[in-house]
Every structure is written in structure tokens, then in C-alpha cells.
Design a protein around this nucleic acid. Sequence first.
DNA 1: CGTCTTTGACCCGCGC
DNA 2: GCGCGGGTCAAAGACG
Length: 268
Amino acid sequence: MEPTCLDTSLNLNVHPSSLHTDMVLEEELQRLRRENKRLTEMLTHLCDSYMVLQKQLTQLMNTNLEQEQLESRKRKAESECCTNKFGVVNNNNNNNGECSSITEDSFKRYKDFSSSPKVQKVLVKTEASNNSLYVMDGYQWRKYGQKVTRDNPSPRAYFRCSFAPTCPVKKKVQRSLEDPTILVTTYEGEHNHCNERGEIGSKQSEGGKGSSPTVRLDLVKSGLFESAQKSSIQQFLVQQMATSLTRDPNFTTALATAISGKILEAKW
DNA sequence: CGTCTTTGACCCGCGC
DNA sequence: GCGCGGGTCAAAGACG
């Protein structure tokens, strides 16, 4: 089958005497400007909505994390109460006092965590059947330990970045207590090298184990909503939009048809 | 044979 | 000072 070649080069040598064509082109230009403006407004609105949603999600995450820590502390307190069950009767007032201190402590802990500039917490949604603690994030990790913690019955895995020997980055991966399909990954430190993959999850790089595909749910990065972030998000969205549009064969075909149509229109 | 995972032992900080 | 618990080490085994 012979491919249909479409000449997409712009013919700017419009006949100067064709006033009608000029007017049509002028109109078309204005129409395109209006459309461009409308699309820009839409994009701005989209960015605003994205920011609002992101903030809501972060607030929700904060609430969940606090609640999780609170509950784990409560469980701890309860188990301690149970061990004292046959001893002296516990004073309820003491319990209440302890609960209030727990809340404050949990909150303080979370605040300390969130204020640390080099600690990132990432939640990764996995398939229910996927029991591995491997998270594909584009870097190469070497597991150096695993531990079962008191707060969570599922084991916590410890990884070091193995791409560069001097890279100080570590990560901890543990299943969420509330939703075992969510892997809570905590990154500590910053990579002192480039991402060798160049993209996230491009290859199953986790020690050759080959885990099931994961879905990135959220990225809670400390200092995420800094002042300059909005513009970068907009830039990112525009890039994403442009990439997805240019990758869409239907779009490129439609674009080529539209351009050629307009050129033909201008010529005739 | 080299690399990676597993896992028990050890270290160390923190609270009591 | 002691015990607990989180984090790390390192030997052994698995695997390509």
C-alpha cells in the first residue's frame, strides 16, 4: 500500500491582489486567537481545579496519617491495658490524660516528619494479589533489611539506592495498615546522580524480582506546595497535553487534515 | 562467580 | 541503668 503523502508546508505566497482571501485569513486568524484564548482559559481553570484537588488530597492524607498513628497508639495503649487486666484496676482519668497526650504526640511527630526537607512519603496502589514490597520508581534499589514493626503486622523492607555506591538515599516500604493494597514508601535523602531509567516505572528494575504493575496513587512530598510550584505544574500539564495529543494518531491526522484544508481553502 | 535476597544478630537511641 | 523497638549488618543461600 502506498502511503498518502501530505504536504504540510505552509504556502505563504498568497496572491497580493486577493483581498477576499486576506479577509478570510484574517478572520480565521482571529478565530484561532479566540480559540487559543478559550483554551488557555480552560487550561488555567484545569490547573486551578488540579491545585484544589491536590490540596484536598494532601489534607486527606494528613488526616489519615494522623488517624493511623492515633489508632496504632490506641492499640498499643489497649494492649498495655490488657496486660494489666489482672492487676490494679486502671484509673479512667489517667487513660483520658494519656489519650490527650497521645494526640499531641502524634501530631507533633507528624509535624516533625513533614517539616523534614529530605523525607518524602509516597503511596503506591498495588494489585490485591501483589504481595511484594517492591515499588518501581525508576531507580535501582538493594534490599538490606526487613523488619516487623509493632504498629503494623506487615513487614517493613529497607532499601538502599544501588545505582551509585555513594548515593545516600534510602527507602522504607511497608503496606498500609488500613489498606494492604497500598504500599507506603518513605524516601530519605536525595539522589546524587541522575535517574538511570529516565522515567518512572519504565522497567522492572527492582532486583530483577519482577513485581506486578503498580499504579502511582499519590505523591506527598514535603514542601510540595511551595510558591513556584503552580507554574511548574502548569508547564507540566501543558507538556503532558501536548505529548498525549501528538501521540494520538487521530489527533495528528485531524490536525493535518485541518491544516491542509485551510491551506486549500486559502488557495482557492 | 558475582549479585541479590533473606534473616537472625547486633547496635543504638529513647523512654521509663 | 535497663528494656524495648527501629534500623543496620553480615553470613548464608538462591539465582542467573
